[in-house]
């Protein structure tokens, strides 16, 4: 009787679980279908809502981070505000969805956010639509001074540990540039920084701008290695794929930002966060 009762209880639990799983899958299917419906452009939805929703990480200075007053600031944040100003007439008509590194893509694909800014990779372009680059970027290594690392060759050794994010691009770069080093995977640049400062790792892979910022904050302790891991990349605005009106608007925005009527705003923002002028508006103009 007792064994029967145990088996009966187990069968009931299994049945309940199967029913819950069925409904969960069905619900996700409905959500996916709803989010894939692009008959109405996001552009119209934002104008109607009168508010822009941007997805961003919140711990990657100088792109997006909290200042001492708790406000979200940074280069990306100023670009988002400029989008809001140009689209809705007010740079404050914006809401930010803060996520970790891996949370950016679901936030866009499920429609929780209208746009984000991130490094353009072809693998990512299979899932989200990117604009032209908002800025040039590169990846390098931030190392601790006490590790004695001064070049890429010093990193490619068995005793060295490098902190990466979850993305496959970092894994590819690790295999290419320092296959002999050990890698550990963390979920944000703040955790990576903690890893090298605590001695868990001796180096971390991140955007050069972020590493430069951290090195400036920790002078004498951390060094942003000059050598790039690979070539230059572009950081672009991304949104849901298949929405021609919205991606065209964003592309026009980026084009005007870098080469046209918004260049003055771009120069101001670029100067504010990087302390230098952006690439010239037109390479063939001398006084530019």
């Amino acid at each position: 009787m007792n064994t029967k009762s145990t088996h009966f209880r187990f069968r009931i639990n299994a049945l309940t679980t199967a029913v819950i799983m069925f409904f969960a899958v069905a619900l996700f299917g409905v959500i996916t279908q709803a989010s894939a419906d692009t008959s109405n452009s996001r552009y119209d939805a934002i104008v109607k809502r009168d508010k822009l929703i941007a997805v961003t990480m919140t711990t990657i200075p100088p792109f997006a981070f909290k200042d001492e007053k708790g406000n979200l600031v940074g280069f990306d944040i100023d670009i988002y505000k400029l989008v809001a100003r140009e689209l809705l007439g007010d740079k404050e008509k914006i809401e930010f969805v803060g996520v970790g590194s891996a949370g950016r893509w679901p936030a866009i694909l499920t429609g929780q956010a209208d746009l984000g800014i991130g490094t353009i990779y072809m693998r990512r372009a299979n899932n989200v639509a990117f604009t032209y680059p908002v800025m040039d970027t590169s990846i390098n290594l931030l190392v601790t001074k006490k590790s004695g690392i001064t070049s890429l060759a010093d990193v490619n050794k068995p005793g060295i540990t490098v902190a990466n994010l979850e993305n496959p691009q970092m894994k590819d770069r690790a295999n290419r540039f320092f296959p002999k080093a050990k890698t550990i995977i963390l979920d944000g640049s703040a955790a990576q920084l903690l890893a090298i400062k605590s001695g868990r790792a001796q180096a971390m892979q991140m955007d050069t701008a972020v590493n430069d910022y951290y090195a400036a904050l920790n002078k004498g302790e951390l060094i942003s290695l000059g050598a790039m891991l690979g070539d230059m990349f572009g950081n672009g605005i991304y949104c849901q794929p298949g929405d021609f009106k919205w991606i065209r608007w964003l592309d026009t925005f980026v084009q005007e930002l870098r080469f046209g009527s918004l260049y003055a705003d771009y120069r101001e923002i670029y100067n504010k966060w990087y302390g230098k002028n952006p690439p010239p508006q037109r390479h063939y103009l001398e006084n530019n």
């Binding site: 893509w105 693998r123 995977i185 963390l186 955790a191």
Partner: peptide, 21 residues
Amino acid sequence: AITVAELMMQAKRTQEATGAI
């Protein structure tokens, strides 16, 4: 969160690699 390759880490890595939500 501390680099252990358990199920949630696998899910996040798979999501990053495939773009699936």
